[in-house]
């Protein structure tokens, strides 16, 4: 019971602190789940994000289910996910009842312009941490550069990159290259 409650509360906290969607959640997850709770490593987070890119549904939910499942089995996965969505339910239903055009308020737009600047830096910091756990040799650097360029300059789906990167990993290591 104790750990289930912790899972619910921790992911509810992550949900409340996620401003500006998907990737903005990463620095919060690193702080709450990796550093404070020790429920996952940076390496596992990159795994969950990669799997989340090519499985259906929202990446935040996928990550919560993964970590909850790892800690407390199926029930843990469900409870962590419910924790993640709980703040959205409360905040949106409260706001939707009160103001319909909340986001058109001028000060809200200024606040979010400020938040987006901060999110740029936090994502940069998160990427530096992920890089340390994900890229161990020159092949890793090559895969990173190739996927970054393809994501920025082609309209291809992330599913393609995930499949190609997995295949590249298998080929490189089978042919004796790369460090584990």
């Amino acid at each position: 019971m104790g750990e289930l409650l912790q899972l619910f509360l921790t992911f509810a906290k992550v949900g409340v602190m996620t401003f500006g969607g998907g990737m903005a959640m990463l620095p919060i997850l690193q702080r709450e789940v990796v550093e404070n709770r020790g429920w996952a490593t940076d390496e596992e987070l990159t795994d969950y994000f990669a799997i989340g890119q090519c499985t259906p549904g929202i990446i935040a939910v996928n990550t919560a289910t993964f970590i909850g499942q790892k800690q407390k089995g199926v029930l843990g996965g469900v409870v962590a996910t419910l924790g993640m969505v709980f703040p959205s339910l409360v905040i949106i239903t409260a706001l939707a009842g009160l103001i319909t055009n909340f986001s058109h308020l001028e000060w809200v737009q200024h606040a979010f312009a400020g938040i987006r600047v901060c999110v740029c830096v936090l994502i940069f910091n998160a990427v530096v941490k992920l890089w340390k756990s994900a890229v161990h040799d020159v092949w890793g650097g090559v895969i990173f550069a190739a996927v970054l360029a393809l994501t920025l300059f082609t309209p291809l789906s992330p599913i393609v990159f995930v499949l190609l990167a997995a295949l590249a990993g298998i080929l490189i290591q089978t042919l004796g290259g790369g460090r584990t």
Partner: peptide, 30 residues
Amino acid sequence: KYVNSAFYGLRPASTAMVAAAGIGVVLLTL
């Protein structure tokens, strides 16, 4: 062995996709 090798390739790719999303926010913001 093969699952581990797949993740060896996936992790840099996953990091790159997060970096790309970050660059998207930079272009919107800075």
